[in-house]
């Protein structure tokens, strides 16, 4: 037999004090001591700080508008186009809702397949999950939008497939794969004792999953599910590249109609960022509070 390699801590005694770590350990201890003494650095921002910042911004904007002289100011232009941009944002929301719905249904099925006892089902669903989970969203979007036909013929009638519905499918794929993992993770996070006790009460596997395991998973899945919704909602402008008439496309169209004045960039894109933020941030906060509420109590 081959002679074993000497392994520190396995077949030789492990030196407990590694001298190389001592200086850095001393520094860490020193820093911790100082921190305890002086307290840590904190920003300690108050609401009025934000107010002051906003005021400053408004003053600058006023100055900029005044400097423009007779030309219409960029913010005034934005104001004229606000409904047009918001209308585009409406499509973003619609796409995000539908893609989430589709992705949730498909992801739930795929996730349950991942915990199947049948190896082929388990393996195939795992492959699908991993494939879509590790592909760039944009590439998936391109693939779906370019591969799907723009219309289908059933009998004599022709059904057009608008761009945005293809975007829904394109976005639902990565959502499906990620939610599949959420479902699988939630199922395996249920303690094995739950499986054992329901098995020993003669529940079938199907009954165990639907009556015992999934009801306990449900709460655990809501926060990650909302998290993925936020990510999806923020990703929907990607489809503007494919010409879907959503908020970013509308912004470009509006700016083009105003002769692409460079001073329009800041107001228009700030407005875009703002509406996305105002929509997504409350959901994110809500998710955090739900996470706290549903935290596993042991």
């Amino acid at each position: 037999m081959k002679r074993c390699r000497m392994l520190t801590g396995v077949n030789t005694t492990a030196p407990t004090r590694l001298p190389v770590l001592l200086p850095s350990a001393a520094a860490t201890i020193g820093a911790a001591r100082r921190e305890r003494h002086e307290g840590t650095f904190r920003l300690n921002l108050k609401l009025w700080h934000g107010g002051a910042l906003l005021l400053l911004l408004l003053i600058f904007l006023g100055v900029a508008e005044a400097a423009n002289g007779t030309r219409e100011g960029p913010w005034a232009i934005l104001w004229r186009w606000k409904w047009f941009v918001l209308q585009g944002f409406g499509l973003n929301l619609l796409i995000s809702f539908l893609a989430m719905a589709l992705g949730t249904v498909a992801g739930a099925v795929l996730g349950l397949m991942q915990v199947s006892l049948l190896a082929p089902v388990r393996t195939s669903s795992w492959v699908v999950t991993q494939f879509f989970r590790n592909s760039p969203w944009l590439v998936l979007l391109f693939t779906v939008m370019l591969l799907l036909p723009f219309e289908i013929e059933i009998g004599d009638t022709v059904f057009p497939i608008p761009d945005w519905t293809k975007a829904v499918i394109g976005f639902s794929l990565p959502i499906m794969a990620n939610l599949s993992e959420v479902v699988r993770g939630a199922v395996i996070s249920i303690p094995s004792g739950q499986w054992e006790s329901s098995e020993s009460l003669a529940f079938s596997r199907r009954q165990t999953i639907w009556m015992i395991i999934l009801p306990q998973c449900f709460k655990r899945m809501i926060p990650p599910w909302m998290n993925w919704y936020c990510i999806l909602a923020m990703a929907t402008p990607l489809c503007s590249i494919m010409g879907v008439e959503e908020s970013v496309t509308h912004v470009s169209q509006a700016m083009a109609a105003e002769d692409n004045r460079p001073d329009l960039l800041t107001p228009f894109y700030s407005f875009l960022l703002l509406i996305h933020f105002v929509y997504t941030y409350p959901i994110a906060r809500w998710t955090i509070s739900l996470e706290r509420k549903f935290a596993v109590k042991l």
């Binding site: 303690p191 004792g193 739950q194 054992e196 006790s197 329901s198 098995e199 020993s200 009460l201 003669a202 529940f203 079938s204 015992i212 009801p215 306990q216």
Partner: peptide, 20 residues
């Protein structure tokens, strides 16, 4: 197995009640 388990009850160290 299900028929067998209808006849044999089991209680565990960790209770394993259904928390929901």
């Amino acid at each position: 197995k299900l028929e067998l388990r209808k006849k044999v009850g089991m209680v565990f160290q960790q209770y394993n009640l259904f928390p929901h």
